[in-house]
Design a protein around this nucleic acid. Structure first.
Length: 591
RNA sequence: CGGGGAGUACCUCAGUCUGGUAGAGGGGCGCCUUUGGGAGGCGCAGGUCGCAGGUUCGAAUCCUGUCUCCCCGACCA
């Protein structure tokens, strides 16, 4: 490939709206161009990266016996009503939907459980057809609340989604673990460092789910990990043990104290230095939306802990939980926000307690009166024992659920998510098969997603320096960058050698980008090469007349060797063979 | 949706407070010079100042409305 054929202008300055390295570098290098918020043009170089990723994804899925197909992005409302997800997706605003000319409601697919279940219920009739796993690589549409970080969270993005169908639960588990291995292979082959974590299954549904997180400080997700025990989970779902138990105290009668202006636990610590945070109980009021109604829920949690809203929503079987607004708080507590407590709340407010309050005795809490708190409050004496559930957010330093290790919080980019769906969709949409003994049985499903375009961004987040991107060889846009310093007829020896290397590499199945641009100074060529980050570099320069070139790796720019051009070609071929990206030999067509 | 900020050339931005000829740097084009780390000189092209109203002799600048984009929170591959 001749670099002079690329319609690309590189930028010296970062675009103003780029917040993370992957976005800034891709924009500067012309990989990417924003059309509107969360929607991007993929330039020629980025498209090559994506095709590399797709190739790896396809090879690994096909190897595991999955079958590729393609489903429509345009979908009818009826299927979504049938599965029961239309209202939730519309209410969350995540769905792009509209009416067609006949007035039928349609949407652009944010995911494909409905379509694939509809496909399966018609195609799969017999146990003899099971198990089967289908997949597709396709554009998805989600009207994200906040598109961000370039390719990391777009409103239109490329996703590989796969769906497994089994005769029973055990089969589903087997399919799931097979896909889990496929995912590990895919991400390893893409050259990514990642962590597999327990996850919440969210709006997709189902029981077990795990996420594949690329380790990166700019990741949007926080994850709880423990090196000693191997425990790892998204903080949304992480279970843990609290390391610091509440103090034991002797029983005293409940009393009421004036606490003017003290709305936070920190302020109360100053008023009552003898009461540690572990002996305070916070009452957090939530406005909860269920499928059929809305209401308020009070969550009791220890003073040093935070509520995990994902766990809360799951526990309450709610569509949505959000902090109650100030007027709601005043209405049910009769007090200003900051003084809510568990005693004396109206009947309509359901009270649930996080496990962290278990064993907390003689505690401090709000009095439901402005500027007053209660002290020496006992469960079972001053108020009923509450309904206990795991509603707490994990914190750095907590213990793993088995108590054997310490949890650390790190960050990751979610590039894959695997779910055991069970029969959620097959029940809702009546997708059944005839079993060996003639019964109608629901299909057991799993679903599996990979953010194909997001992988490209994640790879840069994980691999870049101050000069530019550093692509892992398996997914780099080109394997080799031939940087010719004086091109365009100014030095016939260089032109001849560079074109010879270019042709030879292509003939050997190595994809190569040749910087043949004339009238571009060497400094610019080096800067552009660093920015684009092609992993193997052959510089054709001052030693060209002796048939020698400079060989270097983008990962280690200082380590340069001057070697005969034939050896550089051999090294490139060997590296590509090892990385599994040797392609079909190409014979250049005269241009 | 709530809270904050910004829309001026392909990019990064000044100019807006205090109304009066549309600016810089980068990038692009031409010529000269230069050629192993974003070289230098001369010249050229490129803008309905987001959009619509209003105030005014006169609006990028003041007023009203509206759209878009970005950041902070709830979504997710």
């Amino acid at each position: 490939m001749y670099q002079s054929h690329l319609p690309v202008t590189t930028l010296r300055e970062e675009p103003a709206d780029a917040e993370v390295p992957s976005h800034a570098l891709m924009a500067r290098a012309g990989f990417l161009q924003k059309l509107v918020s969360g929607v991007y043009v993929y330039g020629p170089m980025l498209w090559r990266v994506i095709r590399r990723i797709e190739t790896i994804v396809r090879e690994e899925h096909d190897r595991a016996g999955c079958v590729e197909m393609l489903m429509p992005a345009l979908q009818p409302m009826e299927l979504w009503v049938e599965s029961g997800r239309w209202d939730r997706y519309v209410q969350d605003g995540i769905l792009f939907h509209f009416r067609d000319r006949k007035g039928s409601e349609m949407c652009l697919g944010p995911t494909h459980e409905e379509v694939v279940t509809d496909y399966a219920r018609r195609m799969i009739q017999s146990w003899r057809q099971l198990p089967v796993t289908v997949y597709q690589i396709q554009t998805k549409f989600r009207d994200e609340i906040r598109p961000r970080f370039g390719l990391m969270r777009g409103r239109e993005f490329l996703m590989k989604d796969a769906y497994s169908f089994d005769a029973d639960e055990e089969g589903m588990r087997e399919s799931y673990s097979r896909m889990r291995e496929v995912y590990k292979n895919v991400f390893h082959r893409c050259g990514l460092r990642f962590t597999i974590v327990h996850a919440d299954s969210g709006s997709i549904g189902g029981s077990t789910s795990e996420e594949f997180m690329v380790d990166a400080v700019t990741g949007e997700d926080a994850i709880a990990v423990c090196e000693e025990t191997g425990y790892s989970a998204n903080v949304e779902t992480a279970r843990f043990r609290i390391p610091n138990p509440p103090p034991e105290v002797e029983e005293r009668p409940m009393r009421r104290e004036a606490t003017p202006g003290a709305k936070s636990c920190e302020q109360l610590r100053e008023l009552f230095p003898e009461v540690p945070l572990e002996q305070m109980v916070k009452t957090v009021l939530y406005h909860v939306t269920w499928p059929d109604r809305e209401g308020l829920v009070a969550v009791l949690i220890r003073g040093d802990r935070e509520v995990n809203e994902v766990k809360l929503a799951n526990h309450l079987l709610a569509l949505k939980v959000e902090l109650a607004d100030e007027d709601e708080i005043r209405r049910v507590t009769g007090a200003e926000p900051g003084f809510a407590g568990p005693i004396g709340l109206p009947e309509e407010v359901r009270v649930v307690a996080d496990g962290s309050v278990q064993g907390v005795c003689g505690f401090l809490c709000g009095a439901n009166v402005t500027d007053e708190h209660l002290l020496d409050v006992w469960f079972g004496r001053d108020l009923p024992e509450p309904e206990i559930a795991d509603l707490g957010m994990v914190q750095e330093g907590d213990l793993t659920p088995d108590g054997k290790g310490v949890i650390r919080i790190t960050r990751g980019i979610e590039v894959g998510h695997v779910f055991q769906l069970g029969t959620k969709y097959s029940d809702a949409m009546n997708a059944v098969y005839t079993s060996r003994n003639g019964h109608q049985r629901p299909l057991w499903m799993g679903c599996y997603g990979i953010g194909v375009s997001r992988i490209a961004a994640a790879a840069i987040e994980q691999n870049h320096d101050e000069h530019g991107m550093i692509w892992p060889l398996p997914i780099a846009p080109y394997a080799v960058h031939v940087v010719e310093l004086k091109s365009g007829g100014k030095d016939p020896a260089e032109d001849l050698l560079a074109s010879r290397i270019h042709d030879e590499l292509e003939a050997r199945g190595v994809d190569v980008l040749w910087d043949d641009r004339g009238n571009v100074s060497p400094g610019v060529k080096f800067k552009d090469a660093d920015l684009i980050g092609i992993p193997l570099r052959i510089v054709v320069g001052r030693d060209a007349h002796e048939g020698k070139v400079e060989w270097s790796l983008r990962t280690d720019p200082r380590d340069k060797e001057t070697i005969p051009w034939e050896e550089a070609v051999e090294r490139a071929v060997a590296a590509c063979r090892e990385a599994g990206r040797l392609g079909a030999p190409r014979t250049p067509v005269p241009v």
